[in-house]
Design a protein around this nucleic acid. Structure first.
Lengths: 224, 224
DNA sequence: TAGATTGTTAATCGATTAACAATC
DNA sequence: TAGATTGTTAATCGATTAACAATC
């Protein structure tokens, strides 16, 4: 019953877990010790049954009539996500997006610590952004191994994505957060998660488009 | 049969459509006139049946023994997504991320044209990034209306997200692309799509974590 | 005890996948 | 015609939701 926990947890559940951390931290600040699934659900626009199902996955039991222990829940979720102790990460590609991510202070909360950026542009190498140095990509593998960095954030141009991913894998990177529009072929021994802006924009613009040009031919209905 | 097409299309399908555009454009360059569902599937790591189901949604029929007409397919998908004629957009919040997005040239392909950025920081107002001006947020509503801009990209700090979203709605913005970690309450008359970095990172780091600390207690199994 | 809330088991819903007839 | 590929109808799978017994 405990053995295959990580693997059997639904992906949508994992994606929702950070939201729980958010409202639970607020609850902690308010001095609440317990919080009910219906309270959390209301705060997040979900159903209480879904909250209970999600929390089942992280293995914290609630108390009937009382709710779930707030502090324990935060700890358990962060542990489940691997956010309990900060992981170092390298940014691969010091373009605008790479620099923006390197400067985002919110990652600290997610246990992500960006250590340095890497680029192949001699003009950029040696510069500092947000107190983090831009290093020569030639030094990537060596530094990743010596500093035991196993997370890389991929922000190179689309054309360079595949090559950069291979470099990362050879450098012993275990988890690659891919911000490029390139869908990479699976690489043995490396987990890849992509932030797919095109997919997100597709949802937005198709919805917008169906509002602006109201579908097709509901007209007869109205006319009749 | 044609009436409620937009509404009934599955969200996962919509999210996959941009990938098809990508490989179809490559096929066009290669001079291919038709392409089979199994070809597309192979290129994208999907099953051919899923490709056929997805393409059914955009309303382009294939020919048995021949495949799908490439050019027609691109046109139909772009039309479906509202990418057939470029839409202007404002960036709300000229921080690092806002500037990075304003400079991203890839959006042109998605029919998205970023016109200007807005901020409330007097030091930033008047500056230009990537040829686009940073304007006073006080002018946002007026300009959105006069220029008929109905897409906004939200890149303000988390604390300012709710207020900025309200401003956008009042300015007549119809579609808001939310890059902040704040989950906004639904706003009447405005479509909101969020790029949830925390959710994406949660997937990556939970997978990584289950690799680094290999689950729990499969051990007895191995020992026995 | 009474009653609110959890947690379990079953039902529903939606998306993916399979099977195969229709088609060119 | 023969055969590859589409498109339809049914089966499967997984996630969400509902119902309700267990619990404090």
């Amino acid at each position: 019953m405990t053995g295959d926990r990580q693997i059997s947890v639904a992906l949508p559940t994992i994606r929702r877990l950070p939201m729980y951390v958010g409202i639970l931290e607020k609850a902690v600040q308010d001095g609440q010790v317990h919080v009910s699934s219906s309270h959390m659900a209301a705060a997040l626009g979900l159903e209480s049954i879904q909250v209970r199902k999600d929390l089942e996955a992280v293995g914290v039991a609630g108390q009937p009539r009382v709710g779930f222990p707030v502090a324990e829940l935060v700890t358990a979720i962060e542990r489940f996500l691997g956010w309990d102790n900060a992981s170092d990460a390298f940014v691969l590609g010091a373009g605008h997006l790479g620099m923006a991510l390197a400067g985002y202070r919110g990652f600290a909360r997610y246990g992500l610590n960006i250590v340095a950026l890497f680029d192949n542009d001699p003009c950029k190498i040696g510069q500092k952004v947000h107190g983090k140095e831009i290093l020569d990509v030639a030094r990537f593998a060596d530094l990743a191994e010596r500093l035991h960095v196993h997370i890389a954030i991929l922000t190179v141009p689309a054309e360079a994505a595949a090559e950069a991913a291979t470099l990362a894998a050879q450098a012993g990177i275990k988890a690659l957060w891919n911000f490029t529009p390139t869908k990479l072929a699976p690489i043995e021994g490396m987990i890849v998660e992509r932030v797919d802006l095109a997919a997100s924009l597709a949802v937005l613009s198709s919805k917008l488009s169906s509002v602006l040009r109201p579908a097709h031919s509901e007209v007869p209905e109205e006319a009749a």
